[in-house]
Design a protein around this nucleic acid. Sequence first.
RNA 1: GGGAGCUUAGCUCAGCUGGGAGAGCGUCUGCCUUACAAGCAGAGGGUCGUAGGUUCGAGCCCUACAGUUCCCACCA
Length: 883
Amino acid sequence: MDEQQNIAKQYDPSQVEDRLYSKWMEEGYFHAVPDSKKKPYTIVIPPPNITGQLHMGHALDNTLQDILIRTKRMQGYSALWLPGTDHASIATEAKLVDALAKEGITKDMLGREKFLEKAWEWRKIYGGRIVEQLKKLGSSCDWERERFTMDEGLSKAVQEVFLKLYDKGLIYKGERITNWCPKCNTSISDIEVEFEEQAGHFWYIKYPVKDSDEFVVIATTRPETLLGDTAVAVNPEDERFIHLVGKTLILPLVNKEIPVIADSYVDKEFGTGCVKITPAHDPNDYEVGLRHNLPQIRIMDDKAIMNDNAGQYKGLDRYEARKKILEDLEKLGLLVKIEDHTHNVGTCQRCRTVIEPLISKQWYVRMKPLAEPALEVVRNGTIKFVPERFSKIYFNWMENIQDWCISRQLWWGHRIPAYYCLECGHIMVQASDPDVCPKCGSTRIEQDPDTLDTWFSSALWPFSTLGWPEKTEDLEYFYPTDVLVTGYDIIFFWVARMIFSGMEHMKEAPFKTVFIHGIVKDPQGRKMSKSLGNGIDPLEVIAQYGTDALRFALTIGNSPGNDMRFSTEKVESSRNFANKVWNASRFVLMNFDENIDFSKVDKSKFTVADRWIISRINTVTKEVTENIDKFELGLGLQKVYDFIWEEFCDWYIEMVKPRLYDRESTGRLEVQYVLNFVLGNAMKLLHPYMPFITEEIYNHLINDGRSIMISQWPQYSEELNFADDESKMKIIMDAIRNIRNIRAEMNVPPAKRAKMIFVTSGENEKATLTEGATFIQRLAGASEIVVQADKEGIPADAVGTVIAGVEIFIPLDELIDIEKEIERLNKEKINLEGELKRVDGKLNNEGFVAKAPPKVIEEEKAKRDKYQDMHQKVVERLESLKK
RNA sequence: GGGAGCUUAGCUCAGCUGGGAGAGCGUCUGCCUUACAAGCAGAGGGUCGUAGGUUCGAGCCCUACAGUUCCCACCA
């Protein structure tokens, strides 16, 4: 076949990938519809941010999802992989603000409406970018169903949920201390605060006692908050200070009177035992303040600039204020000492700015009632984490859950459906803009300016994307989804919230399995990050090595939940495998005749090798299918890899070459059939992992002409299990390996062909060796093969070896180095003695014989017999050489 | 302070329910053998972190310890 003869020696993914992806799209293979004849299988994508760029984490996450969905599609499910993107309110808004700043424009200059117009423009430009990048990965998403968290339907779902939870009293507005990011200018939830160890100081400051010479010393890491102090607390059982409780202190610099209070929150052992209490700027102090009815004095504005309450420090940034305050305290002789102190500082996940806890009015979700069903559904196994250990992390978090702050002082996002009467302050939470206040009749009504936490909408993703709150056919058919694939870093942000949302609004868990993967790290084991600049761009890897190689590298040798290092060496070896597959296929295709008619195949012409490889792919099919079912994707891939490279390429193809090179040979058609069958099935098993190359090859093989994507997943069949042929092949392969070993060790030139004599008394061995003679000739470089029952006619200086039940001799024309041969045989002898010692150790152990399963004992006995026989023959051989 | 993971060949990692230690890369030797030098054949290399325990039998189960990474908590 001329066309096939011309296939390039090296696989070029760039010639294949885009072409095939377009074809799949055109054919609509990714599209899934409710089909009563099929079972549904659903995965919803973790929606990437619209401003995002594909990174290795995405590449891994989506490769794993694609492997699962492609497998299930081939297995006959109506397999839906539902894609989409997330508006990522805080991230997008921050980027847009930065971009505008470069043009000298601020949010306020634009106004809300204009700003949102800009944001939607951005979404148009960048939202599509990540989608195109996912396509480069080969993701078989149903793009006809692509969703966006701010789509009309999804926004409807968000509103519906907000109203529902508000009506149930599960959403409330409250004034309390929250995490505030002065840079992003918004409140954030607890999990968006990342603690970072920083080197800081402990400043010891004197607070004089009123009308006394006495004073207390407090230790603080944040002296600027002194301005907002409304008490100093001591432990009620601290005898050192108990006499001061109830007395009044003079707050330095401010010269205000504050009380000394007793609260068990104070640790006697830590610091000085006296704690300044700043209810408006510290979460713990806030709690203490509530217990003791202390005033809350905010001393900073939303940008962490000191406000009116800071008196002379007004207008200073919090760190400038700190410096100034310390100077002033120093002057007054109130700064006692300074110690170095490393402590954890809360920073904004988004921008790394140090969080300023502030008192403000925010919307919260009451979590306790929602957490209970979400815990139960994991406890009772309705939802399983893979690996299982992550359920513990989930429990730990969910059991100690705090109310969720959901309002954000941002513009880009779902606006909170709450309206305020400007006359009487009445709050209306409803779907549409009210005309008049039902309480006072005023028409002066304003909507809450805040938007919702991005995760509020992603929490609804598994059902909002399927049409909820409408009762759609899709929702009915595809919900609940089957697997959620994600990294362990977003279990709290997303997984947990989807679970309680699913339970609350659908009364059903949103998925059955949470398949957790680790983080992709750089070759030195560091997390890939922008600031380190150590990220490896998956798109560059694809451009250089191909998508299949990237996917292979991300999957091979990786086990669920574990982090992995990514290196170009790994991609190179992955690329090499793709090339190997390519060339094996090239070989197969080059050796097909025109107008092959497999209906003429005569199975009686199958050789031991044919049945062996069929039996092997049959077993591998079973194993790989099981591995994928158990989410052991790396193990499954390893098995396909080993099968293709070692068994199919290194053994089977090498063994069938003589039958293919001779166009008149009997069984030529049968070989072609077996090659086509085995390679075809191997490509199917490999397809979920390496979709492009497998499709390209499958298209050239002889089959029903359908795309491999929608072909049927191979089935294990008992009829294709040929145990006899597998054991025969073991003899043949052992013989070949041993002979190759001798030849290498005895420095026999590779090109030199030699006569080989096999001595065996076993009928089975004899028949097998005769049957496999051509294979041995070719693969072990034999010129002639003789199988005989005794050592008749074997020259004394022949080199030799032994496998189970068979002695092998190679008479060489030249004189051999007897010493070297003795040395080599001695090595064999020592090896066998080691094996015998181990087996005997077991069989001579009474406990083993009494308690081990009979099958294990039988196996050990068989091994002992085999090794004893081999050992005896090696010893005899050594003795005859020493003469 | 609490919790989890990891520790296996020079490097990076697999090892499913306990039954003779594996892969890739690297190293050494020999090969351009008409699918593939991004390849073929062969070799070397591990007391599976340490110490106990359970078991006929432990890389795998239990306990303690050491090193390491991460998560949660956040004592000013």
